[in-house]
Amino acid sequence: MIASILDWLTSGASWSGSDGILARLLEHVGYTLLVLVIAALIAIPLGLWIGHSGRGRWLVTAANALRAVPTLGLLFALTLVLLPVLPGSAAFLVPSVIVLVLLAVPAILSGTYAGVEAVQPAARDAARGIGMTGRQVLWQVELPIALPLLISGLRAAVLQVVATATVAAYVGLGGLGRFLIDGLATQDYASTAGGALLVAVLALVLDAPFALLERLVVSPGLTGRSRSLRPSEPNRTAPAGGTT
């Protein structure tokens, strides 16, 4: 069985063409990036606003409650509703993208919000106290400190989107999911398992740039990376005078 999977993965025929691995891989990456950009454009500003202003916290709760709705059910329901309204190939793409965005938003939103919320009250207080405007507090203090959790939210969203985009092949979306869904339908286990392996690898590979991003943009003061130097108190000036 493993041999047939390897055969499928390594044969030139399965890689080429508009329904070959390469094309499907690019489709999958394309959906993921599209969805991630849309979801980030919605969720990051919203999360920053909720965290900064303290208003609209119910939105975060509501978005998280959405996670109890089964992904598959959401996908099917929205496709059924939108299918008759949308023309041509958009009928397959649009519902899937909407569902994927709906799934990605809660992860990014709660990550961003939790990040801003994690700013120590003392740091926020000091920022206002030394004369930062609300906007400066947001950009210079809250956003940089929120970055680690914000990026975690993005990473969770990427995993979610890659996984669900695979399932969305069932409602006609392209991408690597096609090999799984079509392989299951035709009982072609080599293509099913091969597709599954590719999806697993893709999820890992897409996670890597975010790990790198985190290293690049998150201040060492917030991570453990600078902790190797232990706090110390060796640099005091001479102790105060001899009289009590």
């Binding site: 399932v167 799984l180 398992a193 597709g195 599954a196 697993a200």
Partner: peptide, 23 residues
Amino acid sequence: GLLYTVPSLALFVLMPLVLGTGI
């Protein structure tokens, strides 16, 4: 973290390879 990265449908499909079970 790595285990959690594997998409669910892919994991279901790959399980027989590891366990020797039927699909």
